[in-house]
């Protein structure tokens, strides 16, 4: 196996442990079986050419996105964004509160109550992911509660590309609730130092495994 693949696999494992805990908590809260899985991760750096970055972004859900953003800080700082396709959120929200839906399922008009539900779910998932980074690096972090917004995908991409120097940890995430599968992504903006630190710690785990 390629050395880089192994590092990615370890990172993937770390994050899957995190989201597994989040899935347990969410299952308990909504009283339904919830499965969260991170099938793939990618690291993007601003030094990569635009085409490469574009390729990864084009794999993200299309159309309007519902984005929960949470900032974290202290030893490492950054922002984590959980993205889900907005047109799947109506059915998702209804499943969470056990309410049958009478309205058009692809309705994009969300109330404050709907945003609150996404805020809560986003908070649990992002806590678990960022928490695992903190655990791995053995550092404590400070978090904000997530802000939830609706974005047009292209605007969201532009917003990211405007930043001169960036390091992005891109996690693809699938969310299964009551046989409904929603594909989303987590975009974590890290400083280059934080990313290097994370990669170094992952490498240490790898060395421990293989001596």
């Amino acid at each position: 196996m390629h050395e880089k693949d192994l590092t990615y696999d370890i990172l993937k494992e770390i994050f899957n442990i995190g989201v597994g805990k989040a899935a347990n908590m969410l299952s308990e809260i909504v009283g339904k079986k919830i499965i969260l899985d991170i099938p793939n991760i990618t690291i993007l750096e601003s030094k990569e050419d635009d085409e490469e970055i574009y390729k990864h972004f084009s794999a993200l859900p299309q159309g309007a996105l519902m984005v929960s953003s949470m900032k974290f800080g202290e030893k490492i700082t950054g922002e984590a964004n959980l993205l889900f396709p907005a047109n799947k959120m109506r059915i998702f929200i209804n499943l969470c509160i056990g309410q049958p839906e009478y309205m058009n399922e692809e309705d994009l008009n969300f109330t404050d109550m709907d945003f609150d539900i996404i805020r809560e779910v986003g908070n649990i998932i992002l806590n678990s992911i960022i928490g695992e980074i903190g655990n791995t690096l053995d550092i404590s972090l400070k978090y904000t509660l997530p802000e939830v917004r609706l974005f047009n995908k292209s605007k969201f991409e532009i917003g990211l590309k405007d930043k001169e120097e960036f390091c992005i940890l891109l996690l693809y995430i699938s969310f299964i609730i009551d046989d409904v599968k929603i594909e989303g992504a987590v975009i974590i903006n890290l400083t280059i130092d934080s990313l290097n630190e994370l990669m170094k710690m992952t490498k240490d785990i790898e060395d421990d495994l293989y001596g």
Partner: peptide, 26 residues
């Protein structure tokens, strides 16, 4: 006194997590 709330409080104390519980779900 619900399992998830106890776990949440535990993470708040030990890991500095913040939690939000919405009235629609809870």
């Amino acid at each position: 006194d619900r399992n998830y709330f106890r776990n949440a409080i535990d993470s708040v104390v030990k890991k500095d997590y913040k939690y939000f519980f919405s009235s629609s779900i809870h």
